[in-house]
């Protein structure tokens, strides 16, 4: 029973990792840029969630609607103002640009909010539902439900709409996308916006579970990179499965070995995947080559 409990906790935790990683992977797959500031967008979303709660008394699940929109716009501004001018520059320029952005955002947060841990209090925060003797945390269950809904919506958007197909087309074969009339720059803008909106949603879902502090993004983005490599660079739905895998590995490692060893375990798996199947477990493409690295 304990293993089953751990498995379910891991899957629910993995859902959040998946949401963060899917955003990162969309940006990586379409715009072909590793956004080192992705974790800081998560941090911003959580601070916004805190502000909506502290100043407006708004529940994080309600303010999620506004936060997704704000983060989408923030993504558009970042793409237009920072990424677009350096798209044709060497990979190192892009890395330093997003790394620089991440440091700026962290320090801005430190200036505004200090290094304090901030959290919200909701009536359902400690609630659990019992299902066949397994205790499931309500906030984690809600966040997992949201993740599943987003995965389905994203799937339908990418598979069934012309713009969704264009996003996939740009990630697969950029030159051919130009030649069928896709406005590739606009698709980059949209992909960056969606990627940051997804991490915004993840931030809102995390707020009832975690506290926010200026360097919070760094630890989550590290996990997201592991998930992206496991799932396959640029493979959106690979990131979903990868997220679930890391969540389960993290939970099981905490129970079987020691909570302190969980990161060691999934980083060992991360290195093994890089050595054995560098394109990622769920990747159909060419991995880093496919994302222009």
């Amino acid at each position: 029973m304990m293993i089953l409990q751990t498995l379910i906790s891991g899957i629910l935790l993995g859902g959040i990792y998946a949401l963060i990683s899917m955003g990162l992977n969309m940006i990586l797959g379409v715009v072909r840029i590793i956004n080192f500031a992705h974790g800081e967008f998560l941090m911003i979303a959580m601070y916004l969630s805190y502000i909506f709660y502290a100043w407006g008394g708004m529940d994080p699940y309600v303010s999620a609607i506004f936060i997704v929109i704000i983060l989408f716009v923030l993504g558009l501004i970042t793409q237009k103002g920072l990424i677009e001018p350096i798209l044709d520059k060497p990979a190192s320029t892009k890395i330093f640009a997003t790394l620089g952005l991440s440091i700026v955002l962290q320090n801005l947060a430190l200036m505004i909010f200090d290094a304090n841990y901030l959290s919200v209090t909701t009536p359902y925060q400690s609630s659990v539902v019992n299902l066949l003797g397994i205790a499931i945390s309500v906030p984690r269950l809600v966040s997992f439900g949201v993740v599943i809904a987003i995965v389905i919506l994203l799937y339908l958007f990418l598979q069934k709409t012309m713009v969704g197909r264009a996003i996939r087309a740009v990630s697969m074969q950029r030159q051919a996308a130009y030649l069928v009339g896709v406005n590739v720059k606009r698709i980059y803008l949209l992909a960056f916006g969606i990627g940051t909106a997804l991490v915004g949603l993840a931030g809102s879902m995390l707020m009832p579970i975690y506290s926010v502090y200026p360097t919070l993004g760094a630890s989550f983005v590290l996990i997201a990179f592991v998930v992206v490599v496991l799932g396959g660079m640029g493979n959106m739905f690979g990131a979903f499965y990868g997220g679930l895998m890391i969540g389960v590995i993290e939970s099981l490692a905490g129970v079987i070995f020691s909570p302190g060893l969980k990161e060691v375990i999934y980083f060992i798996i991360f290195i093994l995947v890089l050595l054995i199947k560098p394109t990622g477990i769920f990747s159909k493409g060419k991995g880093s080559e496919a994302v222009g690295l």
């Binding site: 012309m162 197909r165 264009a166 996939r168 087309a169 697969m172 074969q173 030159q175 069928v180 896709v182």
Partner: peptide, 18 residues
């Protein structure tokens, strides 16, 4: 330069993107 991980029909539909 087809979109290799899309179906034939999806490739054709993308031809009508404009």
């Amino acid at each position: 330069k087809l979109f290799n991980f899309m179906t034939i029909e999806e490739n054709l539909l993308l031809g009508a993107y404009s």
